[in-house]
Design a protein around this nucleic acid. Sequence first.
DNA 1: TGAAATAAGTGCAACGACTACACTTTCATA
DNA 2: TATGAAAGTGTAGTCGTTGCACTTATTTCA
Lengths: 197, 197
Amino acid sequence: MTEPTGRRERKKAQTRQSLADAALELFLECGYDQVGVKDVADAADVSVTTLFKHFSGKEALVFDQDDDLEAALVAAVRDRTDGQSIPQALREHILLKQTQLAVHATDSRFADFTRLVQETPALRDYAQRMWTRHEAALARAIAEAVGVPEDEVSCAALARFALESRSLILRHPEPRRAADEAFALLEHGWAAAHPGS
Amino acid sequence: MTEPTGRRERKKAQTRQSLADAALELFLECGYDQVGVKDVADAADVSVTTLFKHFSGKEALVFDQDDDLEAALVAAVRDRTDGQSIPQALREHILLKQTQLAVHATDSRFADFTRLVQETPALRDYAQRMWTRHEAALARAIAEAVGVPEDEVSCAALARFALESRSLILRHPEPRRAADEAFALLEHGWAAAHPGS
DNA sequence: TGAAATAAGTGCAACGACTACACTTTCATA
DNA sequence: TATGAAAGTGTAGTCGTTGCACTTATTTCA
């Protein structure tokens, strides 16, 4: 299912990959704003038109795989271990998915990538939207987990706040501690409204 | 101090006003995306260059007076009545400043304005940024009010969450109830971290 | 196997927001 | 009243993005 069957799909995927690779390399080397969309297309040896057939905009060149995000987020709530509260589960997930990898840079390329995103306003904002785009799905998952109607405001609020705290954590020198403090707030607030979950 | 002294400043203010008026009228009539920046300039009888000397971008044409926002926000925390918690004060302020006016439309023009903003992604996002831009100032005010160092994460978190809940409230059919629920979460969480404030 | 349908990729021209530049007009002030 | 600062103008350009008509490669199916 992950394997492209025909030659056509394979070439398509390859073109997309070339574009993403070229973009990241150029952005890292010269800075996001110094590189035009034309430069990326040229480096990948395709036309600008083709570039926009693959990516919805310049910022999207950097975030290749945003599809898993929502599923993982929902799963983090649904499949949390017994006794773990929803805010705790979300803190773990966000911390794992974002910060730990970036800080203990196993791969120095990932650290560079994160720095690029954090230092470029356009990309920082885009990343934030990427996450917030899944607010509704997360809110629904939370509502289902506690067994309340899915339009409960407190669920939407928890979803939004948790997703927002991501950027709060990311910019802090000690992400783990920041996450603990930010989520402590949510933890207590949530417990008051929904005891025992 | 609010009175422009010379004729020059008066004309400048007038030009700015013409632009803002023309923009709002056109946007309301035809929709934000259907109106070009050129159309606005023409309607105000100035050049496009001049338009951009007055406003930093197309979206800014709609939000004329964002300067008071920060001061009012800080004041809402600093000058809250005794016995009122910080989250309560923020809920009141946001509710008053945003939602009440929009709902009980004293002025139907204000309702139209709010609808325009909410229905136009570019404007909705810009408005959200406008508020979030003052997160740091609000966080500082909160930290000062409780007497903790100004880089306390919980203060930044409360500031961010409160500002974010604005849009949560705005899109809800019953803003008052939504505000109560969202801020209840913050209320309890905050009380746990900073008892008695 | 050999069309015919399908989809990727191309080049060009254009649009809209925005900026740089060199210029004119208008006002304040010494 | 002369001088300089500041408001305004028009043009031409950049950059991201889209529409269009077109070629080329691959899949499908009669």
